[in-house]
Deep mutational scan, measured.
Amino acid sequence: HNLTITQGKLFFHYNPKLCLSEIHKMEEVSGTKGRQERNDIALKTNGDQASCENELLKFSYIRTSFDKILLRWEPYWPPDFRDLLGFMLFYKEAPYQNVTEFDGQDACGSNSWTVVDIDPPLRSNDPKSQNHPGWLMRGLKPWTQYAIFVKTLVTFSDERRTYGAKSDIIYVQTDATNPSVPLDPISVSNSSSQIILKWKPPSDPNGNITHYLVFWERQAEDSELFELDYCLKGLKLPSRTWSPPFESEDSQKHNQSEYEDSAGECCSCPKTDSQILKELEESSFRKTFEDYLHNVVFVPRKTSSGTGAEDPRPSRKRRSLGDVGNVTVAVPTVAAFPNTSSTSVPTSPEEHRPFEKVVNKESLVISGLRHFTGYRIELQACNQDTPEERCSVAAYVSARTMPEAKADDIVGPVTHEIFENNVVHLMWQEPKEPNGLIVLYEVSYRRYGDEELHLCVSRKHFALERGCRLRGLSPGNYSVRIRATSLAGNGSWTEPTYFYVTDYLDVPSNIA
């Protein structure tokens, strides 16, 4: 807008934040220059609390790290170098490059900038070799853009010569660093050979998330399962459950009422301010606690030095998902009996873990797994792929695949051998790939016309006998059925096997 004052003059007093240069501009645009008398524009009460600059400061050096910015700028000295009290560095987070010096300023003089007072450097006698002032900004957020400017702080001049310097606002972004852990990993099994893994992005990506790394490792069953005799009275049979499938998407929606109208769909109840505040506090606490764990609990591995020492970490090797089922080394339970199943799973520490690289999504279907087997899954978020990966501390989750139908069934015939004193040795093959492992066998036998009897055969007993022995049988026709019990439950009964026990007292003698 054009402003013209045809008559009258300007009068400025007691404006401590208004620089004289701005008042002189007002004289020019209003056409009143030359009308004012000496005392109409006070030299001592206008701009006496402001830094009124008329020179431009330029930054000469900028260096960044993930949490620091090192700045240096060209030296500046007023005509009387004693008038320079120091520099004021202003900075704040700036997602967009549209910041002005006066953003967030209120009537009390406060604003949204963080201000650092910096002492002037030592003055050199040689004007050509003056030290460049600077400042190291610490405690910054990774991968965050900051708006920065600097200006001088000078003393009051009796001659009211307006001098000083100020830089333009520059924008500097800190470097990326390792992201925080992925949030809320959930693993479920939808079949006997697959596990579905879902997660949420890290709360602090500290860069642009480029991919996720998912490692999985087959877990050995508890050692007590191999040692305890679950045929003993009072000892509860062990059981394991597989990871249940995901709930429906509708039930997972946030901010939804727990109660549904019987007449149909209901609208979600909005969260109160107290609920939102509580969630923010919980989120802040979780982030602080995660940072504490990362800094205190997890110790970084030592990389190899120039002395030739090897990095103890196993090298990563990509495998196809079809090879995942046989990740671990199978060892027989008892070496003397080769027909026992290889369900003991000690994992070799030198073995390469299978892994998958996930790009542009937060889910993965891990296939080719062994049925009813526990897996430990390790999830890392990465925001750099080359020249070397920059990934987060791992988040861990466990899951067990679903049982395989008929995996616990005894394959092959049940054979028998009759000894003296009416002892019958029953023999059968253990299931080759049971659900988890076989903890015991149930032997059901009966003599024709009598009630059915049951015998429990422990895992250890089966390994020693290759089956079991029935003792003290009365003469007669017998039928026997056997079924295995694994961590997933009972298998199917075998087809009945028949044998006849004679009275050993009636056996004919070869003595003449």
Rank of each mutant, 00 (worst) to 15 (best):
E420L: 09
T415N: 01
L379F: 08
R471P: 06
E260R: 13
V424P: 08
L280E: 15
K406Q: 10
E247M: 09
N490G: 15
N360K: 15
T343Y: 07
F226C: 09
R316A: 14
G368K: 12
G412R: 13
V480G: 02
F289E: 01
D250N: 10
Y448P: 07
L293C: 02
Q429K: 15
G489P: 03
L426I: 01
L225E: 04
K357S: 09
I209T: 07
F462A: 07
I209D: 05
P300H: 12
K317S: 11
E290C: 02
K302C: 05
H352C: 09
S251T: 09
S223T: 12
G489R: 04
N255T: 07
I276M: 04
Y375N: 01
M402Q: 08
E388N: 06
S305I: 12
S268D: 07
S305Q: 14
P332S: 11
E258F: 15
S284C: 03
R471W: 05
S479I: 07
T303G: 13
E417L: 09
E260P: 11
V414M: 07
I366E: 01
Q256H: 12
R469E: 05
W216S: 03
S392Y: 00
L369I: 04
L321A: 14
V424T: 02
E433W: 11
T340I: 14
L440Q: 06
R370L: 08
K460A: 10
L293A: 06
I366S: 01
S251P: 14
F298E: 02
E249M: 14
T373K: 03
F298P: 02
V457A: 10
G412H: 11
R459H: 10
K357G: 10
S444V: 15
D273I: 14
K271R: 09
E221Q: 04
S268L: 11
I276W: 05
K406E: 10
E282W: 03
E227F: 14
T485W: 13
R481T: 03
N339H: 10
P354H: 12
E224M: 06
F372C: 04
I418D: 05
A263N: 05
R318A: 13
F215W: 04
C391H: 11
I482P: 00
P434A: 05
P496L: 09
R376D: 04
H294A: 12
A330R: 11
E356I: 06
E356V: 13
G308L: 15
E404G: 10
E351T: 13
G264F: 04
A335W: 13
L455H: 10
R469L: 06
L228Y: 08
V327F: 11
E433T: 08
T502M: 14
